[in-house]
Design a binder for these strands. Structure first.
Lengths: 316, 316
DNA sequence: GGCCGGGATAACCGAATGGTTATCGGGCGA
DNA sequence: TCGCCCGATAACCATTCGGTTATCCCGGCC
């Protein structure tokens, strides 16, 4: 029984899939499957079994899960405790859904580290689906994105979700667009669009956009550029596309049910289990400094500009 | 950071010695030293440092110790949880100081398993010094012997400690024996005599018996047989030597300060952390059945009889 | 019936773990 | 000052771990 094995089990149980667990851990699928097999043999219990659409815990697995989770947590505590005792800088591991990472997280973290002395911050992209597991297993301290159930969610940034297209698009001049009309367009999205738990994903699901119509771009900028070129429609964050709309490069489609007023949240564990740096960041988010940093993005990121994508950072 | 490493660290910290930890784990000293070195390197902190007469925790070590201990405990919980979920019999791991193991523990455990259906019981011998660490790290469920600080101690068996010798011994006919007189005799003891935390060890220390005068026998029976043959004096449990005294094979010396009225205890973790089988055994101890089983020993174990010693059982 | 997605398994590999015996080295007591 | 006790280290070894790629297998679904 090793900690890696326990962690593999916990993530499989939490995410309901070996594949997802492997992706979170940044290893191949057989690696997770193997770790799970080893633990199964050691404890002489299947722990999780395949069922139609997901994995289900055995009675043994149900009992072991909280224990295993706590062990993994304590391992994080241990390294943390010794770090702190040695006066090392706090660690702040932020994960965000792709859109948030692209426009909000980086300036926020930059401002935060400048304000709050020595903090070692890292930023990673993940899906909203995986985010709870990452936070619960202490693989990350803060998760920026949609509100997550079972966690402490702190409002971060208000925004408005619209649907945009190029000025030449067939629907660009419509007075009113029915969901059915827009559903069969080509949808140009970033990774959030492929994640059913983000606002974009929910929007696509709500409009019943078929998967075949969705084209995933490495980031929203690229999607908007393609939309401006008339390749299809795209989800847009109102204040981020404002400039492009003003200049006529993009048009906001009057789709039924939009605009959607939404909030991004900073999700963390409850106070007693939250890391110190996470608490600090939560507090920082409410300051004018943070507001300023997060809003600065709208001006500094024109549609045409292409940035290197933020890669998933892995912590073992 | 592996569980073995954590356990090694915890035991070294608790016992204040690498050697003792190695003995508890039943491995060589470099094995423990190596595990500790690995953990030290991983956490980048010495954790424990040698000081004159013992090992002392660093600030980092102080913080890690409770965490590490809990992790080891949880590992035990995990296996236990899955065992129970599968309906496997409860596990009852009893450790006792040598004298208790020899005369009391075995009949007690036998009676207990006969009464309380399916229980998988094991019995091991250890020193009173190591006993707290064994219980705290869940390497054992119940520790029978002297009362231990920091644990729940449940009175088990009242007994009376005396000093005995053969009828031909120089002091056998004395009206009154001063501590100084008896201190320089040859003392024939079992393993408890070498353990400063047992009653026997305390008695020897109190009388200031020099180490050179102490001969350790594999069990008390053997020591009494040697005492009966005139080879020296021995500590005696009054009701266990009664028959030999009646038959004139042994004589109780009127040593100043003896007899000592003492109690053996069943030591366990506090109720919330105690294993189910430990709770059951505690309760069983108060029943007439248990009393009867424990007292039966006095009749059934004459001095001359030699039994195979109870070996230390190791659980990993 | 055949494809396909996802989990298990096989075969393999390097590195780490966990253990041994033998040896070194540093305090501390006689 | 000389041993001695005890922890650290060296050298070595078998096993396990953690990872890979390739392949198999099974249940759903077109």
């Amino acid at each position: 029984m090793t900690l890696t094995q326990l962690e593999a089990f916990v993530l499989v149980a939490r995410l309901g899939s070996v594949k997802a667990a492997a992706s979170v851990l940044g290893v191949s699928e057989p690696a997770v499957s193997g770790a799970l097999a080893a633990l199964r043999q050691h404890l002489d219990d299947p722990l999780v079994v395949r069922t139609g659409g997901g994995m289900e815990l055995t009675p043994g697995g149900q009992r072991v899960l909280p224990i295993a989770s706590q062990m993994v947590n304590l391992a994080a505590d241990a390294t943390d405790a010794v770090r702190r005792a040695q006066g090392a800088p706090d660690l702040l591991r932020v994960v965000a859904t792709s859109t948030v990472a692209e426009y909000v997280a980086r300036p926020l973290i930059t401002a935060f580290t400048q304000r709050h002395g020595p903090v070692e911050a890292t930023l990673g992209v993940t899906t909203a689906t995986e985010m709870p597991a990452l936070l619960m297993e202490r693989l990350a301290d803060v998760g920026l994105g949609p509100r997550l159930g079972g966690l402490d969610s702190h409002p971060m940034l208000r925004h408005r979700l619209v649907v945009v297209a190029g000025p030449e698009h067939r629907l660009a001049r419509a007075e009113r667009v029915e969901p059915a009309d827009v559903a069969h367009q080509d949808w140009l999205v970033d990774a959030s669009g492929a994640d059913p738990a983000t606002e974009t994903g929910i929007l696509l699901a709500h409009l019943r956009v078929p998967d075949a119509r969705v084209r995933v771009f490495p980031n929203l900028d690229a999607a908007w550029t393609a939309a401006a070129a008339g390749e299809g429609v795209a989800p847009g964050i109102a204040h981020l596309v404002a400039e492009d709309v003003d200049h006529g490069r993009l048009v906001i489609l009057p789709v039924e049910g939009t605009p959607l007023d939404l909030l991004w949240y900073a999700n963390t564990l409850p106070p007693d289990r939250r890391s110190r740096s996470a608490t600090k960041l939560r507090r920082f988010i409410d300051t004018p400094d943070a507001m300023h940093a997060m809003h600065r993005a709208d001006a500094s990121v024109p549609v045409a500009r292409f940035r290197p994508p933020v890669y998933v950072t892995l912590w073992s």
